[in-house]
Design a protein around this nucleic acid. Structure first.
Lengths: 110, 110
DNA sequence: GTATAAAGGTTTGCATTTCAAACTAATTGA
DNA sequence: TCAATTAGTTTGAAATGCAAACCTTTATAC
């Protein structure tokens, strides 16, 4: 059995990115320069609490930047991908595509 | 914002299948008529406990069949996909491919 | 003014999940 | 017969995911 076989690679997927809610957030952000909290909330239909905690996790791992600013006097939270985050989310989707291909080619050895 | 947008679909991915270890198990089985416990353990490099509990979960959800037999006097556990499981894992990979495409086409509306 | 509600998030606490270490039970080897 | 191996299951601790409750500021009604 080759080291780094396709199934080990599947197991090795980055779980921070792979979790569906965060995959959705990161994928939105990959198409936007930036997005505010409400926009993310609407487009993903996540609860505030859930969105907030996923964003915190992504921020801790340096995948997104969170800028707290004001629009007039209302607080406004702007989220964008870090350079790291941009690479990571692109890479994740590319890996998934590659793994799908590789696994459909694989045959057991007897 | 269209109902059932691509990001809601990402969030809606089946978590039983999406979790990397189970995705690996299901993907192996999609290429094999059946596999025994040890084979799955080796090819995914999972610990016994971990493999066992993931298999239980997959069995509960009727995605795999687990047959306990003997090889001589040694117990042997044979795992295979149910028909449901076959459809589900194929569908999951197809969805991932489709979501990657759809999300790369998406642009925010202003 | 002063309740009253709304906007914009964060924190908290619980339920679920994931994982490997510890356990069980049967078999083989010395 | 005693130790080691094989083949798995159970257990318990840690991490995760989620929404309800909470907080703070701003707009609205009276």
């Amino acid at each position: 059995m080759s080291e780094n076989n396709v199934f080990k690679k599947i197991r090795g997927l980055n779980r921070t990115l792979h979790e569906p809610s965060r995959l959705a957030i990161m994928t939105v952000l990959a198409s936007c320069e930036s997005a505010d909290f409400l926009f993310l909330r609407r487009i993903t239909s996540m609860s505030k609490g859930n969105l907030s905690s996923h964003l915190s996790k992504l921020e801790k791992e340096k995948l997104v930047d969170i800028r707290k600013t004001y629009e007039g006097k209302k607080p406004l939270t702007i989220i964008s991908l870090t350079n790291n985050g941009k690479k990571a989310i692109k890479n994740h989707w590319d890996q998934l595509e590659e793994l799908k291909k590789q696994s459909s080619d694989w045959k057991p050895e007897f």
